[in-house]
């Protein structure tokens, strides 16, 4: 990749653009999900974002069983079985011809190429809402730093138009990528999943050493430079993986050691299971398919632990859906022991 590559031909692979996003930074935002991620977390909520290549998936509820996709595939990678249209992932090259042909959009190509200008034109459409809400654009993924050149140009152009920018990173990248991208970001959303290096390797496929180093690096950038302005840390709370007292305490103690005042928010994001269909569509098993949502009490309890670790307690909050009483038959079995708050469960928003 060359730094001087022409911005008009530079292309990024985008998984999805989500308008009126209210969960990825301040205000009303449009979130761009870039394709490709160096981690492979077992709980991943966006499994279609992991591969950097375009992929097709099949949404059964839309399919009218015309089978035109099967005829049009040059690799003969599609076939019909009892469960519907199947994609042979070995053969599929992600050329997208089936998706182009599909009359009902049951087959979708995940990962479209955009130039910076095309993408910016699409992203600024909600400017009025950004301005009224203090919102803007969040570039998420996948891992956006994998497409550092494109993302740098994208953020630079958006900042040039006075739009608030945020980047959501898993922290697995070179320092050079951070140094190039972050001067154009108002806010960094930084994921810290597990503090124990071995557990991290076990659940995500790589160690957290570089992630924690990069977190230090970002913290210094925030402290010493005009941009980025702010750093938010996010920890996914995954049942049986990241939801232990020790993990939350360990992350908190690490964060407490960073330069004071740099982190303005630490969000514990409760596991959600809405992505279960995504795995099916991609022809994959998901270890968490049967995992239940977190209990509200448990999230409160973990947030309390987080607040007791030495970080400014005011920056800790938890988000996401929790279990609604009575919507699971297996209550109790997956229920975590609740130490501080033995009262019965309240209905959360599901």
């Amino acid at each position: 990749m060359s730094v001087t590559k022409d911005i008009t031909t530079l292309k990024g692979t985008v998984l999805e653009i989500q308008r009126m996003s209210t969960e990825d930074g301040p205000g009303i935002r449009t979130t761009v999900f870039m394709k490709g991620c160096p981690l492979s977390c077992t709980w991943c909520h966006n499994p279609e974002s992991i591969s950097p290549r375009p992929q097709v998936h099949w949404i059964g509820s839309r399919c009218i069983m015309c089978k035109m996709c099967i005829d049009v595939c040059p690799e003969n990678a599609l076939y019909l079985d009892a469960g519907g249209i199947e994609v042979n992932r070995e053969l599929c090259t992600g050329c997208g011809r089936c998706a182009d042909e599909c009359p009902s959009t049951a087959l979708e190509l995940l990962g479209r190429k955009w130039t910076v200008h095309e993408l910016v034109a699409e992203l600024v459409k909600d400017r009025a809402f950004f301005e009224k809400s203090g919102g803007g654009i969040t570039v998420s993924g996948g891992e956006p730093t994998l497409q550092k050149e494109f993302v740098t140009e994208l953020l630079k152009t958006l900042r040039g138009q006075g739009i608030h920018t945020a980047i959501d990173t898993c922290g697995v990248c070179g320092k050079d990528a951070l140094d190039r991208i972050l001067p154009h970001a108002n806010l960094v959303l930084f994921d810290v999943k597990l503090i124990d290096a071995e557990l991290h390797r076990g659940f995500t496929g790589s160690s957290n050493e570089r992630i924690l180093e990069n977190l230090w690096h970002v913290a210094r950038l925030v402290k010493e430079h005009l941009y980025p302005r702010e750093l938010w840390v996010r920890t996914p709370v995954i049942p049986g993986a990241t939801d232990t007292d020790e993990n939350i305490r360990g992350i908190g103690e690490f964060l407490a050691g960073l330069p004071a005042g740099v982190i303005t928010r630490w969000e514990l994001c409760a596991f959600n299971n809405l992505c279960v269909d995504k795995y099916t569509r991609l022809g994959r098993q998901w270890d968490f398919a049967d995992a239940a949502l977190m209990y509200e009490e448990r999230m409160e309890y973990l947030a309390e632990i987080a607040r007791s670790t030495g970080v400014d307690p005011a920056i800790v909050l938890w988000t996401g859906s929790t279990r609604y009483e009575g919507n699971n038959d297996d209550t109790g079995e997956k229920k975590k022991s609740i130490k501080n708050n033995p009262t019965s469960c309240q209905g959360g928003i599901t």
Partner: peptide, 21 residues
């Protein structure tokens, strides 16, 4: 869920102000 907490209610208010525009 757009109205689930004070922060989201602020976002919803901002949506209405955006609708004005």
């Amino acid at each position: 869920s757009i109205l689930k907490d004070p922060e989201h209610r602020e976002k919803f208010k901002a949506f209405l102000r955006g609708y004005v525009e």
